[in-house]
């Protein structure tokens, strides 16, 4: 978006602040204020929750993946119980039941939530818009190979694709295969190769 709409300080106005107030924004404000007035929530709780979500990003998942690439024992624990393994690394993922599924030469995993938008949000942050679209949710389970091609990922016919449908209580994360030629990389350098999409299954890790 061109920054042709600047505030007196020269910064672009926040997108949510300079458009006409919508009906649903009005409802959000009203509901939030009523929840505070009724003593259900405090403004501080709401602010803290937003900060907590903002702090979660695919970098957290990338750190977990990189650890699994360098530490076989950790990888075994991750595949056994991804919630516990993530907590072990200091990531507070709440009561979420997280399951890691491993990509190999024979198997490629893809995650989706056909019902709505369940996503490993407590590890990776909020899902990308396309993950929530009807098109992705409808087609990921019907023609995953074609969907992956649209994401620029062409898998050989021999590769088996496993699609995992998330639920409110059970979320998946893909453990992508470690790229070849990365034997000398540090754990931090490896983490930098792990993209969000590679942990959803719509992409592969970057090459070094």
């Amino acid at each position: 978006m061109p920054h042709d709409h600047l505030s007196p300080s020269g910064h672009p106005y926040r997108k949510d602040d300079d458009h006409p107030l919508t009906y649903w924004q009005t409802m959000e404000i009203a509901v939030r204020e009523l929840l505070v007035e009724k003593g259900v929530l405090t403004p501080a709780q709401i602010t803290a929750q937003i900060e907590t979500m903002d702090a979660r990003s695919p970098a957290n998942g990338a750190a977990v993946v990189a650890r699994a690439w360098v530490d076989p024992d950790f990888k075994a624990r991750l595949l056994q119980d991804a919630s516990a393994a993530s907590r072990e690394m200091g990531f507070d993922i709440g009561p979420l039941h997280l399951i890691a599924v491993e990509n190999t030469k024979e198997i490629h995993n893809l995650i989706v939530c056909t019902l709505c938008s369940c996503y490993p949000r407590n590890l990776l942050g909020l899902p990308p818009d396309w993950y929530k679209t009807r098109a992705y949710r409808s087609r990921a389970v019907r023609e995953p190979r074609k969907v992956l091609e649209e994401f620029g990922l062409s898998l050989s016919k021999e590769t088996q694709i496993r699609v995992h449908d998330s639920t409110a209580d059970m979320r998946y994360i893909v453990l992508p295969a470690r790229p070849d030629g990365t034997d000398n990389l540090s754990e931090a350098d490896l983490a930098a190769l792990v993209t969000r999409d590679s942990m959803i299954g719509t992409g592969l890790p970057k090459q070094p």
């Binding site: 926040r14 997108k15 949510d16 602040d17 924004q25 959000e28 404000i29 509901v31 939030r32 929840l35 929530l41 709780q45 709401i46 929750q49 937003i50 979500m53 903002d54 989706v112 056909t114 019902l115 909020l126 990308p128 818009d129 396309w130 679209t133 009807r134 098109a135 992705y136 949710r137 409808s138 087609r139 990921a140 389970v141 019907r142 969907v147 649209e150 994401f151 449908d165």
Partner: peptide
């Protein structure tokens, strides 16, 4: 929804606006 025919997946993404983050927070809380 899963399995029904649909068009191409629109891969656009956007930064969440403050009001959207607040809605998300209200749901979690």
């Amino acid at each position: 929804m899963g399995g029904t025919p649909a068009g191409p997946v629109c891969q656009d993404d956007h930064d969440f606006a403050l009001w959207e983050k607040r809605v998300d927070a209200l749901m979690v809380l």
